[in-house]
């Protein structure tokens, strides 16, 4: 059997970026903070786009610890959802109009390793367990040096119920 011809690059990009934009665009609080996502294949990097409103301590100045916490949690939640739906996005079973509910955070722990500088920050999450009902996610945020994170987080989530399979 002849190998199926790969899809044109623009078809692939449009599909993936469309779903990602719908996913991140659906969270008002991510827009309030200025959190966006960059994608390389299935790998996501969350970006906290700096603004003066993110400052907690104006004397240093440093990014507010609550902003850092929220940034890590958004990065974890979106990355977890993205990893969960990836196969369905590729098959076409899920598109920008049929996204699942977001996972619910059970708990979230943040380690503040150094103060956040007044500039953009980046975060990547690693899904350490992704079950039918529960998931664990590690997330790390950095600014200038990838090897010197300024915060790390660990979160547990309840996964949304999958809609009943069609025809059942």
């Amino acid at each position: 059997m002849a190998r199926q011809r790969p899809e044109p690059v623009q078809v692939v990009k449009t599909r993936r970026d469309g779903v990602l934009a719908a996913l991140t665009g659906s969270i008002p609080y991510a827009q309030f903070l200025g959190v966006t996502f960059e994608r390389r294949g299935d790998e996501l990097t969350a970006v906290l786009n700096y603004s003066d409103d993110l400052i907690g301590n104006p004397l240093l100045p440093a990014i507010h610890g609550g902003v850092t916490a929220a940034f890590l949690e958004i990065a974890a939640t979106v990355s977890l959802t993205w990893a969960t739906i990836w196969d369905d996005v590729e098959s076409g079973a899920i598109d920008a109009t049929s996204l699942p509910r977001l996972p619910k955070t059970i708990d979230f722990t943040i380690d503040y390793l150094r103060s956040g500088l007044p500039r953009d920050a980046y975060a990547r999450a690693r899904i350490t367990r992704s079950g039918r009902r529960y998931a664990s996610v590690q997330v790390e945020a950095w600014q200038d040096n990838r090897a010197r994170p300024f915060a790390q987080g660990l979160g547990h989530f309840v996964m949304p119920r999958k809609p009943e399979a069609s025809g059942v």
């Binding site: 008002p28 609080y29 827009q31 309030f32 609550g66 902003v67 916490a69 929220a70 949690e73 955070t105």
Partner: peptide, 18 residues
Amino acid sequence: RFIGDPQTGVIAGGAVSA
């Protein structure tokens, strides 16, 4: 502006964290 889940209007966990 602090909503985390637009389907329910519930405030984002991150805002509660802040």
